[in-house]
């Protein structure tokens, strides 16, 4: 394990940011810390980097206890949401900063800066100041700067959070490819479940300062540990007191299946390829159901029609705690 977080607690005044957090992050993978804003994921990342100190607990990086180490001795690369570029230094000098601090030979620095700038597609901007770059370019520069010191782990705090939707999507795909190329253990914080699902090998879901679940994107989607994970990683709806994905609910126009729950269609929405139904059951539940348009057409569904709902076999499900 590359990073071991054990029993970490952190409070800000009366606010509990992290509550006995235990996580192990595997070497060489791209791991996402996912959760809603204010859930503690950024705090955890900053504690791993040493930018914040834990009230109790320990942090181990590649087998060394880093709990008491200052950030400059942890050998982590950190990328900030708002880039944290050195405004008075050129792009090349930004990237070489860490190597200059480490007093690497001039020739080595020049060569490595060239390599990194071409890796992040900024070679032609080497002599510009950061203020002459776009947000996406600045963040790529910040990434090159963090990689320059050959960190044991690369930590990214909402790296694409300040960028517009299109650049965001481009950069996240690019980050995935970059990671496959560079293979450094990478942890990034995001509140965007789509981003986490698309990019990460492993996702750590954090909410209210606690780790809710750790697993691969498929694990979390198909076998969510609880209500929170289920509803945070995609749509969820209740049927008979259990949470399901709306596309995991089957609709029958006659009471064929045993245990089907009866209800009436109160709303039909067509969203492109999908049809979204709202079915009011006799128990008063409003159940969301999703199906393809062709399937809906086959069934001949109409507003006000009585239908019977049942989950598909092997559907992801979570019972709601009462």
């Amino acid at each position: 394990m590359s990073i071991d977080v054990r029993g970490v607690n952190k409070r800000f005044g009366g606010f509990v940011a992290l509550d006995d957090v235990n996580v192990s992050i595997p070497t060489g993978q791209l791991t996402a810390l996912l959760g809603p804003s204010g859930g503690g994921k950024s705090t955890l990342l900053r504690i791993i980097a040493g930018l914040e100190s834990a009230d109790s607990g320990s942090i181990e990086i590649e087998g060394t206890d880093a709990t008491q180490l200052p950030p400059q001795r942890r050998n982590v690369g950190f990328v900030f949401q708002h880039y944290a570029v050195f405004k008075h230094l050129t792009v090349a000098r930004n990237v070489s900063f860490g190597m200059e601090i480490r007093k690497r030979p001039r020739a080595e620095i020049t060569q490595r800066v060239d390599e990194l700038l071409s890796l992040v597609h900024l070679s032609q901007f080497a002599d510009r100041l950061p203020s002459q770059l776009s947000g996406g370019q600045r963040q790529r520069m910040a990434l090159a700067r963090a990689l320059a010191v050959q960190p044991t782990v690369l930590l990214l705090d909402e790296p694409f959070g300040a960028l517009d939707a299109k650049v965001r999507k481009e950069l996240r795909e690019w980050l995935r490819r970059l990671h496959d190329e560079v293979q450094v253990t990478t942890v990034f914080v995001t509140h965007d479940q789509e981003e986490a699902m698309e990019v990460a090998d492993e996702i750590v879901v954090i909410n209210h300062g606690r780790v809710e679940q750790v697993g691969s994107p498929d694990d979390l989607y198909d076998r969510p540990a609880n209500e929170f994970v289920m509803s945070f990683l995609g749509e969820a709806t209740t049927l008979g007191g259990t949470l399901f994905r709306p596309h995991d609910i089957e609709v029958a126009t006659s009471p064929l299946a045993v245990g089907g729950i009866e209800g009436t269609i109160s709303r039909i929405q067509r969203v492109g390829f999908w049809v979204r139904l709202t079915v009011l059951t006799d128990d008063g539940e409003a159940v969301a159901v999703e199906m393809t348009r062709s399937h809906a057409r086959e069934l001949g569904l109409a507003h006000g029609q009585t239908v019977w709902l049942s989950p598909v076999p092997r559907a992801a499900r979570v019972s709601i705690a009462v």
């Binding site: 930018l51 400059q72 001795r73 690369g77 601090i101």
Partner: peptide, 19 residues
């Protein structure tokens, strides 16, 4: 932010201040 970035890149407090 910039100071924290410098620290994470290995700069000591004095180096962070001067640079």
């Amino acid at each position: 932010d910039q100071e924290q970035a410098a620290k994470s890149l290995g700069a000591s407090s004095a180096q962070t201040f001067w640079r």
